[in-house]
Amino acid sequence: MNDTTTFKQSLTINLRVIGALLMREIITRYGRHNLGFLWLFLEPMMFTLGVTAIWSYTHANHLGSTLPIAAFTLTGYSTILLWRNMPTRCVSAVIPNLGLMYHRNVVLLDIFVSRIVLEVTAVTASFSTLGILFFSSGLMKAPEDIVPVLIGWMMLAWFGASMSLFVGALGARSEVIEKIWHPISYLTFPLSGAAFMLEWLPAPARAVLIWMPTVNCCEIIRQGFFGPMVHAHYDMSYVAIFNTCLMLLGLAQVRLVAERIAPQ
């Protein structure tokens, strides 16, 4: 048996394990009754719809901007759910799933990957569905250029996945991490770029916030949505470097934890 065949067999087994963990997570979280797994997509949709309704009803005006409220909310609050939900689900993922580690083919990374894939799928489906609904109902126009939207969305998902590995591994080593992650995730919301664009801010604030990867991703997504209506500021090569370093750090932490934990 050559190395290529061995790799294909290992990959097949690994994908089956992740698929099984995905199904287990869906059933455990949402059950088999009522809407079941549909809540996976409805939860993020309800959050974004709620914020859109409130802002539209109050005629919220973003620092004098004339951008459509529905599109601005969609490109802001959906991005929050994308990067924040993954670490939130992974920070407490290890302890409840230690029993699964008795299975030879289940490794710690599989547990994290299954939850990451689940959250990315849910928020992406919500984002796409709401975009179609808003466009069909006339609340917003189609994106000016879909390519920047896809680039920003994928980079933001990469950031969230990397953060999930890091936070999840640390959470397995100390319960304190889970308790401090939640307030940190909420406190970083005003700095995430969801509710503003850098062009609206004074130059000193802009120079600081440009270092936030989430801000760069929000900027390029809105560049794709609004085109010449906005002046976006972003540096995706910086985001790629940041994400790479964070992912390597997260994988290193996962490896350390995997060597120490014992199934119960």
Rank of each mutant, 00 (worst) to 15 (best):
S137P: 05
S114V: 00
V107G: 06
L81E: 08
F72W: 13
P228I: 10
P202D: 12
F159D: 06
R206M: 09
V94A: 08
A258P: 00
G50N: 13
M247N: 10
V230C: 13
R24F: 07
A172Q: 04
V149Y: 04
S185C: 04
G99H: 11
E25M: 04
P68V: 06
A262K: 14
I95E: 15
I54D: 05
T73S: 06
M86V: 10
P213Y: 00
T12I: 11
F196C: 13
I180K: 08
N97A: 06
L63E: 08
S237D: 12
A20R: 05
V91Y: 03
F135D: 05
A205R: 02
D145S: 11
R32S: 05
M163D: 00
Q253D: 01
A142D: 04
D235V: 08
G64T: 10
S65E: 08
I151G: 11
P190N: 11
M247D: 08
I132Q: 03
I26A: 13
V215M: 01
R89M: 12
K179R: 15
P190V: 07
Q223Y: 15
H231C: 02
S164M: 14
A53G: 03
W83F: 15
L256F: 12
L100P: 00
W83L: 10
G131D: 01
S114E: 02
R222Y: 09
I26H: 06
S10N: 15
S164Y: 04
C90R: 00
F189M: 15
T12P: 00
K179E: 05
C217I: 04
L191R: 04
V113E: 06
L170G: 04
R89G: 13
E219R: 08
Y234F: 15
L100W: 07
L156N: 04
S237Q: 11
L109A: 14
M154S: 13
S174L: 04
A240G: 09
L201Q: 03
N243E: 10
T52R: 06
N14R: 13
W153M: 02
E43A: 09
M140C: 09
S92G: 14
L49T: 06
G64W: 03
L40K: 01
A172E: 02
Q264L: 11
R255A: 14
I132N: 12
G160C: 04
N2I: 09
V17M: 12
L108E: 05
P204D: 07
F196L: 12
S92T: 09
V176P: 02
L38Y: 05
A262V: 13
L187G: 08
M247E: 05
I111L: 14
T6A: 14
L11F: 15
L133S: 14
S126H: 02
I146T: 12
M212T: 08
E219V: 06
A71T: 14
L249I: 11
N216C: 13
L109Q: 06
R260S: 07
L15H: 01
V91E: 13
S185V: 07
Y57W: 14
V230A: 09
A122D: 06
S10I: 07
V257I: 10
L63V: 09
P183C: 07
F159P: 01
V208R: 02
L21Q: 12
D110E: 01
L81I: 03
T244Y: 11
P190I: 07
S192H: 10
